[in-house]
Design a binder for these strands. Structure first.
Lengths: 354, 354
DNA sequence: CCCGGCCCAGAAAACGGTTTCTGGCTCGGG
DNA sequence: CCCGAGCCAGAAACCGTTTTCTGGGCCGGG
């Protein structure tokens, strides 16, 4: 029932071809007719049907973005960057929340293929699952076939353009920072299992320990799910277990926030009793108390570069590497006593056994 | 170049009509042929072109969302709610960041009309601008004409389905909370001018003061822009100006975070020296220190209800009202020097007229 | 044996645009 | 006066689906 191009043509007393040409301005039309057509367009409030257009042009003017959860600031920042570049190129952004379910991610890509999107950006790291990888390969092939592009954030076992932040390097750096402060028993609240992001960050952590000749203690690594509440619970369990540690490396800032809350509720002071570091450097991190020492990930840049790969598909450079940077704030301080292997202090503060 | 329905038909040795019917399952097809078609679909990795489909069906299976900035947690939470319901109904969500520019909002709606979206949700409050309202009316009419729906969050001077949180009531409540604590000089860091959200919240603030017989002091109300840094600057200016106040009502939590930082940097303690309240109750607000007293706005619910209005268009109920609730945490405490006048206000201080 | 009905498959007409191709008109040059 | 060029408008094909309409084959009843 909305006005069609024929309606406009009829009202202006011209053919549909002429209307189309006025709208697109890619063919000479006499000023007189042009005005009449424009007037008719205004009168009818006509807007061209993007689907009919997408049917003949190969491009649809939309891109798809797959993420875990839009209310996670990490993804929100990436999307912000994507939006910026999409806007400049006049494209619309389709958001798909997978809730970290690989099957849904695949289903979403298929839907997006149906939409004939100009490209798909997967913002979440990849899941180590054979079925998933196989399915992803297939979808990537399908996208390529239709002249579309799959852009990955993080390194996948799929040959496709990618933007990869240096997760391992950042984790190494921030762990090294703790080591330099004299901490030796450093706990790690890790991310959800089988995710590349989780593993890269854990690898950096283990690498830093190894570089100091410290054997990894499995008891110090507890699983999480990148959520505040999950980290709160893990951290509380860690404290309650009585295991000895003087610092915590949370796999991301959201988890660090949960850890801070758990420590506070257990009566432990940061950084006096326990040093805490996170990862990502979310905007909020500087406003926590204490302000969080963390690793800055250029989230908006990831989005901008990823979208850039769609707007100007590269001929050769398939992978864009992005540096991460340790940001030292007030949630870390030198290990008390500076002892490499401190005895459990009488106060019980640094080794919170009950 | 992606496979079309004809390719599938050819490979399966049937007509395109049959393929379509197998895919949609809305017409009897012999099992034998059905299998052959399914196999061909799989072989070719065929995915139906959503645009061609949208051309005949009236629905496109997409909805548009217009917001200021996706990296603002307020909007991110709303979108999360929208996503949930959109997923259930198998729809895709198009995100449009207007950066608070009314012209862009209009332009976006027009783009979305071209996409023949099933509906458009404007998440941001409305701007008091005649041109904008006129243009919005026109777009709303256009959407209605194409069987689509415009859903507004907040009350607009446009007759369209809406979801409106009780901003004024919440502002009244949280200001009353401060008044009950004995605060009399309460500063207000307000939002950007001419926004309904800003004005509703300010109205609640002024109403609460009035109910206590306190005249509004223009010097205590300073403009802001809903941003952390803007609020930081405003708050710092307020402190530096030497004006007397014992509490601050920030127009939203993001601004409260900026205020907290400014106060801390000026050596003022919260809540000992100054009480601070915000608005929205973002997920992070409980993890600030001190945890923020604020007004809970059911953001995800706003999104869910808004999307609900699109999925099941209402016949009569055009406006969904959503309650807000004061959440008291540790950023507020009784006014020092003892209750200036902590007694109840002159009777009848219930809630502001709506 | 004939005919009506049922089950299933195909032909073709939309849907709403863009673009190629065709052609009418005007104008200037020879 | 004729002809070619240039400018502009329209007719029609096409994009990839869905769906209506048509009809062939088969079965059962009369």
């Amino acid at each position: 029932m909305p006005a069609t191009i024929s309606d406009v043509a009829a009202r202006a007393g011209v053919s549909v071809a002429t209307v189309s040409r006025v709208l697109n301005g890619n063919y000479p039309v006499a000023e007189h007719t042009r005005d009449r057509v424009s007037q008719a367009v205004r009168d009818l409030g006509y807007v061209a049907n993007a689907h009919a257009r997408a049917l003949i042009k190969s491009t649809s003017g939309t891109v798809g973005v797959i993420l875990h959860d839009i209310s996670d600031p990490y993804f929100a920042e990436i999307v912000k960057g994507i939006q910026e570049v999409a806007d400049e190129s006049g494209r619309l952004v389709l958001i798909c929340s997978s809730q970290r379910d690989p099957d849904r991610e695949i289903a979403y890509i298929e839907m997006l293929r149906g939409q004939r999107v100009d490209g798909v950006i997967i913002t979440s790291g990849y899941v180590e699952d054979d079925d998933f990888v196989t399915a992803l390969h297939e979808q990537a092939r399908g996208l390529r076939l239709q002249g579309s592009i799959l852009v990955l954030c993080g390194h996948y076992p799929v040959r496709s353009p990618a933007v990869v932040p240096d997760n391992a390097g950042g984790a190494f750096g921030v762990t090294a920072h703790l080591l330099q402060l004299g901490h030796r028993r450093i706990a790690h609240l890790s991310g959800p299992p089988r995710f590349s992001t989780t593993e890269d960050r854990q690898r950096g952590y283990e690498g830093a320990l190894a570089s100091y000749g410290i054997p990894a203690d499995p008891g110090l690594v507890v699983g999480g799910d990148f959520s505040r509440d999950g980290a709160y619970a893990s951290c509380a369990r860690l404290v309650d277990s009585g295991i000895d540690f003087s610092a915590i490396f949370a796999a991301n800032d959201i988890m660090a926030i949960g850890a801070l809350a758990a420590l506070r509720d257990r009566g432990l002071r940061v950084p006096d009793d326990v040093s805490v570091v996170g990862f990502d450097d979310l905007p909020i991190s500087r406003d926590l108390s204490p302000p969080l020492t963390t690793v800055a990930v250029p989230m908006a840049d990831i989005g901008r570069r990823a979208m850039g790969l769609i707007v100007n598909p590269p001929s050769h450079t398939w992978v864009v590497h992005l540096a991460t940077q340790v940001v030292i704030r007030a949630s870390t301080s030198p290990h008390r006593g500076g002892s490499v292997d401190p005895a459990r202090p009488p106060s019980g503060a640094a080794s919170p056994a009950r």
